[in-house]
Design a protein around this nucleic acid. Structure first.
Lengths: 182, 182
DNA sequence: CATATTCCATAGTGGTCGCTATGGAATATG
DNA sequence: CATATTCCATAGCGACCACTATGGAATATG
């Protein structure tokens, strides 16, 4: 997972993987099938259980809290000392040949799933009166997703954890009810 | 440029490039040196003259206008009918083996340059009194950069131009003086 | 203890990578 | 018209790609 995270899907060779895992190529293939299946396994390990993610968003006190948690967790994870910079999902399949478009789709599906959960959470807040009726859910969920994915690029470029957390705080000022002025 | 844009730097082969350009490999090598130099040339073509970019940001009526223009142009460019989705700079070197880290740095330098120009423009607005003294320039420029880079991922995932433009509008509500409520 | 079976590291498979040597056609020169 | 020079497409360079056939060691069985 760490090797794919650091170097991407197509740009990581099976030789890199066997070296990192300390196993031989035949062991890898009997255990995981092929490189694509191993990558998808690494993605599952990285993303965690989708139900847990859905529950985390659903159980947050408000959509605002959910968005804040998501972005803060991303900013922290992308600047960890023990892990590669940025987001495995954002960088590993950001580009690729036509041969890997199904892998790109699988990763995109995860992103779309997160956005959908967040979208639904925002709609619930609107229905509950916690957010104004004029709130545009897609607009807000899109902003949160863009900030999360964008921070991955900034983290790879060397941005500090503090600067990313500041970016999160700035993004939250776009939320309905958060004063833009100090 | 379009081929690198669509498939990334390391994940585009020289055979792909010669096919797209309609030339043979020896012609490509005598004209451009090697694959890396050809990519950097494509990046220059994509990014345009850095001075033009700097002047565009500097000459905008305000930092807000500059930020809005940057993000709107990105949202539009990332969803063009005639070009690949997303941003060449954001996706082509988002991941790569250790061998291409100098290319990744070159692309990161362009991003840092844009952010620095925007940062300086914000500082000028603060000095001119167009923005409150409490404004944090790095925070705002970081947000704009994150939204721009993030929209590239969303565009690749299939987001519409309208939804990206809505994201831009949402992001601008984080700007000092822009009311968060409708 | 002898035979059969499982297991896995070595050593390669054909194919593609980035890159280039070479020979024949086209042009310039005497 | 003969020779010299430029030019570029063909063909192929070693290295690496994802992936796998095979033989010897270790274990299980009679």
């Amino acid at each position: 997972m760490l090797t794919f995270w650091r170097h991407g899907y197509e740009t990581t060779s099976v030789a890199d993987l066997t070296a990192a895992m300390g196993v031989t190529a035949p062991s890898l293939y009997t255990a995981f099938g092929d490189k694509k299946l191993l990558f998808l396994e690494a993605v599952r390990l990285y993303a965690g259980d989708p139900d847990v993610m859905a529950r985390t968003i659903g159980d947050a006190p408000s959509a605002l809290e959910a968005a804040r948690d998501l972005m803060t967790a991303a900013a922290t994870a992308y600047t960890g000392e023990e892990t590669p910079r940025g987001c495995l999902l954002a960088s590993a399949t950001a580009s690729g040949s036509a041969a890997s478009c199904d892998v790109q789709q699988a990763v995109a599906d995860i992103r779309r799933g997160v956005q959908r959960r967040l979208d639904e959470r925002i709609q619930r807040d609107i229905a509950d009166g916690a957010l104004p009726l004029t709130t545009n859910p897609a607009e807000l969920s899109g902003l949160v997703m863009a900030v999360i994915q964008g921070m991955s690029v900034l983290a790879r470029d060397g941005a500090s954890r503090a600067s990313l957390l500041a970016t999160v705080q700035a993004a939250l000022r776009a939320w309905p009810g958060m004063a833009a002025e100090r």
